[in-house]
Each structure stands twice: as structure tokens, then as C-alpha cells.
Design a binder for these strands. Structure first.
Ligand SMILES: [Mn+2]
Ligand SMILES: [Mn+2]
Ligand SMILES: [Zn+2]
Ligand SMILES: [Zn+2]
Lengths: 140, 140
DNA sequence: GGCTAAATGCAACATTATTACAATTAGCTC
DNA sequence: GAGCTAATTGTAATAATGTTGCATTTAGCC
């Protein structure tokens, strides 16, 4: 996964730098979306330092290459996660316990593509967030 | 629309204050999502002043009552718009010209509800953002 | 190992968001 | 309509997030 991203990076003429590897490493292993400062914090606990400006720039690059994606998080912050699902990022956010679950579904994408087509809109990326109650919290 | 919101506000024991009326007024007439500072700016051009803290608090309240909603904007900021569509907020954002078009679709909601149900998730709000090319930019 | 464009770090700044507390006001009672 | 009071707003201070310009470093190349 991270290796793939680095290959794509290089194939597009970008360097495989230490900061880029570190950011990809974190994104690759943490399931939840992460803000730039989240990433900085995680790396900090591992004794690695990256300037926040650098992290912003790396995330911008990854997004522009579709290797990562910005999304709406429960708190409203910009987050990024590795783009394992080619333009489809969906999240279920529990309003009660805050749990976030990411998933992808190509059928929904198709429906959305068709729908947008009616407006002459050509869709490339699908982001969505369902808020409600997770199975645990719903039972209560 | 705004009148309705005020009624709901009062029914829940909240006061119909001048700042709340002003924020609702703006949200009700501007079609695009607005950030707290957007709202402050619009009011400013009309000779009305509201402190940004007040606006944040009002938007929080409106969201908690489902009278408004936070969303991902093209720039990644938190925006709010009046909730005319009961838990369904969908946006098409053109990656080229930045145009934002809001819409709602109950069929998509149904599909999403069903999908989430498979995970035991009970969906209450649907947010989605399609990014791609609007009809104009796609032609070029 | 040196060269050079690309990338990072740093500093300064801009914007957005939150907190604590004092001042004001909407809605109620009389 | 005047007075009362809890709710709301404004103010000030601060925190968190995001951007820009420029000096320094480094990856990829010869
Ligand atoms: Mn993507
Ligand atoms: Mn809503
Ligand atoms: Zn839950
Ligand atoms: Zn366009």
C-alpha cells in the first residue's frame, strides 16, 4: 500500500523523500482519517519531527494524485486517508459514541454518477458521510 | 422558512433573539453553504454587526436542532445552510470552476439507509459531495 | 562525489475556533 | 408597561488551523 503510493509518486516525477514516506506510513496504518496535526502528533510520539507546513504540502500532493483525500470529519476538520478505493470515500459516524467506519460501495457510485449526469455533471470523486447511530448505540 | 425555524426554536424553549433572526435570515436567502465568517461579512454589508462567537453559537444550536447543517465545502471549511431537506445534503462541486450546486434526493437516501442497515447502522443524516466537472467545464 | 531542481524547514503571519466572564436582553410576572 | 431573571450576547484573550516567502537541505541524476 505505502510502497504502491511511493511508486506512483516517483512515476509522476516526484521524489521519494523521508517526510513523504513518513506521512504515507502513518496514513497507511491508521484506519481513521487524520488531520495534518494528527499526523504530526503521531510522528512526534515516535520521535520523528515534521514541520506542519511540510505535512500540509504532502497531503495536498497526495490528494492531487488521488493517493489521499480530504473529507468531512465529525468535528468538521479536514482529514486525509489513503485512497484505497479510487474516488469513493464513505463514512458512517455515530452521533453518540463518535465511532467512524469507512467503507466504499461501487453500486452507490454508479447511482450517483447517473444522478449527476442528469445535471450534466461528470463525477470523479464520491464523498459521503452518514451520521446516525452505530449498532451498539442504537440498541441502547 | 425562517419563520418556521423561529417557531421550532421557541417550541424548544430557546429565545427568538435578534442575532438568531439575522443568522436565519441570511441562511434562508443565500443558496450556497456559508461559513460563520461568511455570514458575519454578509451582515456587515447590511450594516448589522454580530460577534463571530455569537454566530458560532447560533450555528451550533441550529445544527443541534437540525435546522442547519455542517458540511464539507470545496475549501474544506465548515459551512452551514438551512435544512430544507430533512437530513439530506448533497453537493456537486466543480473541480475546475469551483461552482457548487446543492441538491437532495430521497431515493439515494433510501439506498444509503439500506446499505448502512447491513452494518447495523441507523442513518439519520446524509451528506455527500460529488467532485468532478460541471456541464460547462466538461464541454471544454 | 558533485550538481541542481525539488523539497523541506523556518519564521512570520492570517484565518478560524474556543473559553471565561461581564454586560445585555427576551420572555415572563405582575 | 416596569421589573425580574435566566438565557443570550459581546468582549477579550487565547488556542488551533492554515498560508506565504525565503533560506537550507536533499533526492535523483550525471
Ligand atoms: Mn479519492
Ligand atoms: Mn440536516
Ligand atoms: Zn455509537
Ligand atoms: Zn465548472
Amino acid at each position: 500500500m505505502v510502497r504502491d503510493s511511493i511508486r506512483i509518486l516517483q512515476a509522476q516525477g516526484h521524489k521519494a523523500t523521508r517526510p513523504r514516506k513518513l506521512v504515507l506510513e502513518v496514513l497507511g496504518e491508521i484506519e481513521n482519517p487524520l488531520s495534518p496535526y494528527d499526523i504530526q502528533g503521531i510522528l512526534h510520539t515516535r520521535g520523528k519531527y515534521l514541520n506542519h507546513v511540510t505535512i500540509y504540502r504532502i497531503l495536498d500532493l497526495l490528494c492531487s494524485l488521488n493517493l489521499a483525500h480530504k473529507m468531512l470529519s465529525s468535528g468538521g476538520f479536514v482529514k486525509c486517508s489513503l485512497d484505497a478505493t479510487e474516488g469513493c470515500h464513505r463514512f458512517m459516524v455515530c452521533q453518540h459514541c463518535g465511532a467512524i467506519r469507512e467503507f466504499a460501495d461501487k453500486e452507490l457510485c454508479q447511482e450517483e454518477n447517473d444522478f449527476a449526469q442528469n445535471f450534466g455533471f461528470h463525477t470523479e470523486h464520491h464523498l459521503s458521510e452518514f451520521s446516525g447511530l452505530c449498532s451498539r448505540c442504537y440498541k441502547k
